[in-house]
Amino acid sequence: MRKENKLVKWIMISICALFLFVMLVLPLGYIIYTSLSDGVKSFISSVTDEYTIKAMKLTIITTLWAVGINTVFGLCASWCLTRFDFKGKKVISALIDLPLTISPVIAGLVFLLTYGRQSVLYPLLEKFGISIIFAVPGVIIATIFVTFPYISREIIPVLNSIGTDEEEAAALMGMNGFEIFRKITFPHIRWAFLFGVVLCSARAMGEFGAVSVLSGHLKGLTNTLPLHVEMLYQGYDFTGAFAVSSLLILMAVVILILRNILEKK
């Protein structure tokens, strides 16, 4: 390599390093630094605050629901979209990707219109005593919506690339559907599936816009961790907000590490 090229190389690397440092490392470092600036004690007291723990529980429950529902959907959708040809296949896959292009705030609005007071469904819901808007089910359903495509999108390309030969052979030899899936298909898609689960949980834990529309911000009831951070911040409890944020950063870093491990498999 010529000398001039080497210089270009190091200039380019420095530009990237500087950019990533300012945009990514500095914000993270700042949060952790500020959350510890009042001492470890106040950090622990904000993290173990009653409302923080309630918010964390709700975040975990929401994430589990989103991952669970999207697992069932992701596996079914990728099976039927890659294993069979039928009319309307393109429409279905376009509809699955739709939540990716919709602003979270609009996603929240859409559910507000569906289950809110002015909806045709509202009298029906009221009759059965089900409240969705400004309640936990609303938070969960909004999260499912924004994470809807995450698992199927990771599995579909893998299923397409492995083809159907093995499964056809197994079917002709008399294996039933669940056996085929468990013994033949699943080993192929295991890592892609886990990868999707990781992405799905990352998004589910961090979702803010859609959940913010539907939760009604009821402290201790419908506040997820990101909403709790907002509430602390707007109450000028910066140390508290940053302490809870560092919990979310910890989760994000764990997710990134998992992601990088899974991507290599």
């Binding site: 990514l24 998004r203 803010f208 997710i255």
Partner: peptide, 14 residues
């Protein structure tokens, strides 16, 4: 991928 993994509200306040 950090911006995908980090909740947007956290990024916002930082």
């Amino acid at each position: 991928e950090l911006p995908f993994a980090l909740p947007t509200a956290v990024a916002g306040i930082a």
